[in-house]
Nucleic acid binder design. Sequence first.
DNA 1: CTAGGGTTAG
Length: 733
Amino acid sequence: MYVKAGMLVDAANLFDEMSERNVISFVTLIQGFSDYGRFVDAVELFSGLHREGHELNQFVFTTILKLLVRTGWAELVWTVHACIHKLAHGSSAFVGTALIDAYSVCGYVNVARDVFDEVVCKDMVACTGMVACYAENGCSEEALELFSQMRVIGFRPNNYTFTGALKACAGLEALNGGKSVHGCVIKSCYEGDLYVGTALLDLYTKFGDIEEARQVFQEMPKNDVVPWSLMVSRYAQSDRCEEALDLFCQMRQAFVVPNQFTYASTLQACATMEHLDFGMQIHCHVTKVGIDSDVYVSNALMGVYAKCGKIDDSMDLFVESPNRNDVSWNTMIVGYAQLGDGEKALMLFSGMIRCQVEATEVTYSSALHASSGLAALESGVQIHSVTVKTIYDKDTVVGNSLIDMYAKCGNIKDARLVFDKLKQRDEVSWNTIISGYSMHGLALEALKVFEMMQETNCKPNKLTFVGVLSACSNAGLLDQGQAYFDSMVQDYDVEPCIEHYTCMVWLLGRSGHLDKAVKLINEIPFEPSIMVWRALLGACVIHNDVELGRTAANHVLEMDPQDEATHVLLSNIYATAKRWDNVAYVRKNMKRKGVKKEPGLSWIENQGTVHYFAVGDTSHPDMKLINGMLEWLKLRTLKLGHVPNCNAILLDVAEDEKERLLWVHSERLALAFGLVRAPSRSPIRIIKNLRICMDCHATVKLISKIVQRDIIVRDLNRFHHFQDGVCSCGDYW
DNA sequence: CTAGGGTTAG
C-alpha cells in the first residue's frame, strides 16, 4: 500500500521492522525503488534477497531484469543471467523475454539470440521481444526474417509485434516492406493503436512520404503527445516549418499538453524560420512550466536566438543554463560562426576543450567553418592536428570541413590531399573540392574532379553544378560552360537555379556575348536576382558597354539602392567612356542617398595572430615599417611604368591625393605588413572583405614580380594567386 | 515478460 501511494520511506521502514520477510515483500519494495529511480537501493535489496537464501523465482528475476533495462547496467545483467542459469530458469519464456530485453538495451544482440534459442516454448511475447531486440540494434533483416517466421508458424502478430516490424522496415529504409506491414496492420484492425500508428508515422515521415503520414495521423487517436510531437518534429526537419508551427497550434487547441520533446521541435522550426516572436512566446511558456532547464529545450532556445541574430541573448541563456552539454557549446559555436564572428566561435571552441566537454564531429566541423570564414589557416591547421588524435579523423563531415577550410584559406593543395585521403566521400566532399578549385581559378582541375565523380555512386546535384559552372565562368571556358549547362538539364535532371544563371550570365558577358547574356536573363523563368544583374554589370564594365551597364546598374540599385560597389562600377564605366558629367552625377547621387561606404578591411595571419587593417588605418604598432615598405613599393612600381588607375576613388579630391588614397587601401597595408613580418619566401595570404579594386590588382601583380613571392588574395568572391607578375584570375573577376 | 517522439552540422 505504501509503495503504491509513493510513500517509499514508510514502506522501507515497515520492511526493516518486519520480523519475517518473504520474497513478495522484497519484490514489492524493489519495484518501489525502481519506479522512483532509486536503482542502487533496488539492486542492494536484490543482493539482500539473495544473501538471506530465499528461493529466487521467475517473478524476482523479471522484476530485477526490468529494473536493469532502465539502468542499462550490463555487468549486473550478466550476474543475474548466471544466477538464472544456475537455477535452470533459462528455458522459461517468461524469464527469457526479460533477459532478451535486458541484453537488447545493452546492445548484446548475439547473447540475446542465445537466450532466445534456449527458450523451450517460444511464445508470442518472446518472439516479439526478439524482433524488438533486432530492430533496436540495427539488425533489421533479422527482425523482419523472424517476423515472417512467426507468421508462418501461425502466430498472429499483435500491436507490439507490428511496432517492432515497422521499426525494422524504417531501419532498412524499406518503404515497400513497410507498406505491406501497414496492410497487415489494417487487416488485423490495429490501425487505431497508438504505438503502431506512431511507428507508421515514423516510417513514412523518415522517407519523405509526409502526406501518407498525415493520412495515418488523421486516423489516429488525438489525445497523446507523442504522435503530435513526432509530426511537429518531422515537419520542422523537412523544411515545412510553417506546418510544424501550425500543427503545434492545433495540438494546443486539442488540449494536448506539450512536453519538452514538443517544445524542442517547435523551437527548431522557429529557428529555421527565424521566427523570433513565436520563439519568445514559447520561451515564456517553457519558463512558466519549468522545463526551460531541459537541455534539449534550452539548446533549442539558444538556437532560436542565435539564428534570429540575437546572439547575446543566446549567450545569456548559455551562461545561465544549469545543464550544458556538447550540443549547447556547438550551438553557440555555430551561432557565432554563422554570424561571421569567427573569433568568438574559436574562443568558445577552446573554452569547450578547457572545460573538458567532449568535442564531436559537429564541433570540429563548425570550428573549421569558423576558421575558413576568417581564413585563419594556422588555427585551422591546429584544429586539424587535434582531430587527427580523435575518432573523428575519418569522419566525412569533418573531412569535408577540412577540405573547405584548406580551400578557403588559400591552400588548395592540402584541400586536395584531405580529399584524396577521405575514406568515404559523399556529395558534399565532391562539391566542396570542385568549388574549391573553382574559387582558385583552377577550372581544369575542377572539371577533372567532376569527371571522376561520374565514376562513383555520388550523383551530381544542384550545388555540384554551381561549382562546375562557376569554375568555367571564373576561367572563361565558354563552350564547356555552355555544354555543362545544357547537360545539367538534359542528363542530370537538375533544374537551373539562380546561381547557375548568374554563372552563365557572367561567362557569356565576360566573353563578350553581352547580347546572349541579356537573352538568357530574359529566359529565366523567375525573377532574376540582384546577383544576375551584378554579373551583367561586371561584364559591361569589362567591355565598356555604357548603355547596357546603366540598365544593369539600375536594376541592381532598384533592389539595393545603397549598394556602394554598383555605384563605383557605374562610375567606372562612365569614366572609361570619358563621360565625366555622368561620373559627377553618380557621385552626387551617392551623396544624396547617403550611401555608406562599406569600409575596406583586410587581414593577414602571422604566427597565430590575425592582424586587421582597415582602409587608411594607421593604428598598427608596426606602422613605421609598413609605411617604409609602402614607399619603397610605390617607387618600384612607378619605375616599372605603372600608371595608377584612380577610377575607384569617388571623392572630389585632386589627382595626386587620389593616388595617395590608393596606397592606403587595406590590402596594401596588409601586404606591406606581410612583406615586413612574415618569414621570408613564404607565400603571403591576405583576405579582403570587398572585391579587390582594379588598381590594387594591377599593383599587386607587379609587386609579386618585384619581390618574387607568391601573394594570395581572397576577395569577396574568389582567390587571386599572384605569381611573377601574373594573376590566376586572368584579370577577370 | 514485448512498443513510440526531441536540440547542434558542411
